[in-house]
Design a protein around this nucleic acid. Sequence first.
DNA 1: TTCACTACTTAACAAATGATAAGTTCGTTA
DNA 2: TAACGAACTTATCATTTGTTAAGTAGTGAA
Lengths: 189, 189
Amino acid sequence: MIYQVIASVIGQFPDEYKAKLEEISTVRVFERDSIILEQGHNCNHLWFINTGAVKAFEWIDGVERVSHFFLNNMFFTNYYCWVTKKQSDLTYKVVEQSEIIEIDYPKLEALCARYHIFDTIGRKMAERIFVQEYFNKKLLLNYSAKERYEYFEKEQPEIFQHFALKDIASFIGITDVSLSRIRKERIGK
Amino acid sequence: MIYQVIASVIGQFPDEYKAKLEEISTVRVFERDSIILEQGHNCNHLWFINTGAVKAFEWIDGVERVSHFFLNNMFFTNYYCWVTKKQSDLTYKVVEQSEIIEIDYPKLEALCARYHIFDTIGRKMAERIFVQEYFNKKLLLNYSAKERYEYFEKEQPEIFQHFALKDIASFIGITDVSLSRIRKERIGK
DNA sequence: TTCACTACTTAACAAATGATAAGTTCGTTA
DNA sequence: TAACGAACTTATCATTTGTTAAGTAGTGAA
């Protein structure tokens, strides 16, 4: 199962490494509102969502500030933690019942050290994460809230099928009330 | 020269690799307002600033939107280009006379493929870039323009010694007029 | 020196977004 | 069923930021 998914990331994944990967992986089912990783804790896993939806956020001045959404067939982890060796700045919460593959990170590192192909996967995934962060930063820096909303509505409509509008508002960088206003103004179009 | 600098990035850098790195490097002096890499062109180098200052920006609706500042002892390149194999989304312009080491990227890749240590440097630099982008994105997403200004004023005052306020305003995500207003309001404090 | 240009500031007004509070809808649960 | 709570909307007013235009100061070039 898991190797099919990773194959979609790196193109091909030889049979001989499938078993090694499955050895360090666990399939888990999380109920709605479960917390996978909590702010202030260490991040020791890489996750892959078979089915379900996960949001990442942090508490700032008593408000949840959502920074990432994850859906089917996506990897996620706190890459910032891995790089800096600090505790997680984000909490990762399941927003609907989800089947998730949990991969042990220290064991994955051991595989990386031994087999070049795992290193390649790791680098490609890190590159994906970078490009996504870079893109979202540019969106925040250079476009208005309305433009950001229209971008996600058009390019990532699946987000709206899984996450609450208040979370999408937070993700876009505005309040839920402002997003409601933007949506109202768009009805006339 | 260059290896001292890279040593500061990776901690130690054995003598035997210094010559290899210098073979693929060129020291260049750029005058003020020179363009190192232009939006729409390919990015084939990695740069290191011995002395000087460089800003990266893109044109959006006829306005320069500044996204990065680079100063002494910093590497820079368009990592997004390398990952996506696309043409540069940014223009890199020298804002004061600068001495810059230019490293040929294809040749660096060849060194990476052959010597593990160059690969390690590459990964550590990519990690640095990621963390910086991640931090700046969080600043944009979670804090007001005034808070962002106060952060850079306190934590990166050297920026103010090299770049114009209008560029700093753009970097923070506001207009030069808004920044001027924020600065005025702060005088009373 | 004078001229032009740029950076920066200031002021007045417009537009976007936040804050608060009230109301609606919907689903959950006692 | 009835009560409750969460998500969402709407309205009002406050705050922040943008836009435009004018003015000042400094810099470099003719």
